[in-house]
Design a protein around this nucleic acid. Structure first.
Lengths: 227, 227
DNA sequence: CATGAAACATACCAGTGGGTGTGTTTGCGT
DNA sequence: ACGCAAACACACCCACTGGTATGTTTCATG
């Protein structure tokens, strides 16, 4: 009971992601192992159906290691989401290439997101947690809203660059794109066939792009895309 | 242990929905009360976070009543899904009005589905269960696939009636429509604002319909729709 | 090499929740 | 009225799980 013990990073105050950044390399490795194993279990069985014991069995860690790094199961889940969000943030810089118009950048961004939703356990677990976590524990609507704003920003730049048809509202289209991805991911997940996500999103683009983009942009795009 | 007891409808064989249809009116009432309360809890907290004690407290029933009608918690959840699916089946007949072209019928069908996703606890709980239920317990991809086939059928009729533009593939568009609805529902649910679902789906139509429907159909549609 | 904190390991606890066994009421046929 | 099954009520069980308390190892630092 005495508070003479060391202030453990996970059991600290109530902020979501402290990340003391003073972790020894071994600690970072075990933390990542637990986080990844947890994300995989969350992606497969959801939040409540995932037991910490099973996660620890897969990760090779123990209860002590877990509760040293994370204050609770909920904090562990939030850490998975935070890791996913950070990955999406890093993705922005990874996309920007010179000579890439805003619309093509949006295409590339979505492609990377889809890639993560298929391959990356963190992204797969995180997206599922957005719906499985109890309401108070998830930043309500914040993550989807951010995706919508990011897409709307790129679409706004595309509109100013004259790449979009007249009357196309960036915010509206952005909402549809995010919903499309979320919906297809959900359907693929329900069918246990997440690899078909790429094809479904490609089909969505073939239907959506002629609606929003100018003929000139479509011509250059069709000329540039493989196949 | 002796098998002299009555064969209880829920605890019967392994088929999903026996529905003995010989239930006394009181039994049907309690069954529906439990089913509805369970659907509400499933919709709010998901499958695993829902305790049978809490739904029984809400429904007024007891463990005895529950396990008389349903063999297990999983069977209860499957019954909610089955009820939702049956409601969607009945919806087909409820839509068909004379003088309604296939495309308008699709619009009406989607509108009724959206209405159910906002108001009907069975539909709200059932859709959530499609993702929360363990994989073996949910008809993998069957329900979404059926929605896609239904939409594709109506779009096929619309194409044959000359209501769609050239080059529009019914199956492809149907997949996008189902994904759109599923995605928007998911986003609205995450934001705890399910009433905005109608507006979001309306926005999707304003973006999608000009792409797939002929100008003639759009003219009559814009003339007929309120507002 | 001593020392204290960081980074784990292990045994254990207490609440919870799905499921069961048995008793009790309701309703229907005769 | 009587019997019997349907339809429920209630007490109980126990496996499981998140969390904790305490002991043990690793590592940086002087």
């Amino acid at each position: 009971m005495s508070s003479t013990g060391p202030k453990r990073p996970g059991a600290g105050d109530s902020d979501a992601s402290a990340e003391p950044a003073a972790l020894q390399p071994r600690a970072r490795a075990t933390r990542l192992a637990i986080l990844t194993a947890a994300a995989e279990h969350f992606a497969r069985n959801g939040y409540h159906a995932t037991s910490l014991d099973s996660v620890l069995a897969d990760s090779g860690g123990t209860k002590g290691a877990l509760y040293f790094h994370f204050a609770s199961k909920e904090a562990l889940a939030r850490a998975v989401i935070a890791e996913m969000v950070q990955g999406w943030g890093d993705l922005r810089g990874h996309i920007s290439r010179p000579g890439l118009d805003p619309l093509a950048a949006l295409l590339a961004l979505v492609d990377e997101v889809v890639r993560g939703l298929i391959e990356d356990p963190i992204a797969r677990g995180g997206t599922r947690l957005l719906n499985d976590l109890p309401r108070r524990a998830r930043d309500v609507g914040g993550h989807y809203g951010r995706g919508e704003r990011d897409a709307a920003a790129l679409l706004g730049q595309a509109a100013q660059a004259g790449l979009l048809r007249d009357g196309i509202e960036p915010a509206l289209v952005a909402r549809q794109i995010v919903a499309l991805i979320a919906g297809h991911r959900q359907i693929c997940d329900a069918a246990a066939d997440r690899h078909s996500l790429r094809q479904r999103v490609d089909e969505a683009w073939t239907l959506l792009l002629p609606t929003i983009a100018t003929d000139a942009w479509l011509a250059t795009w069709r000329a540039a895309k493989p196949g």
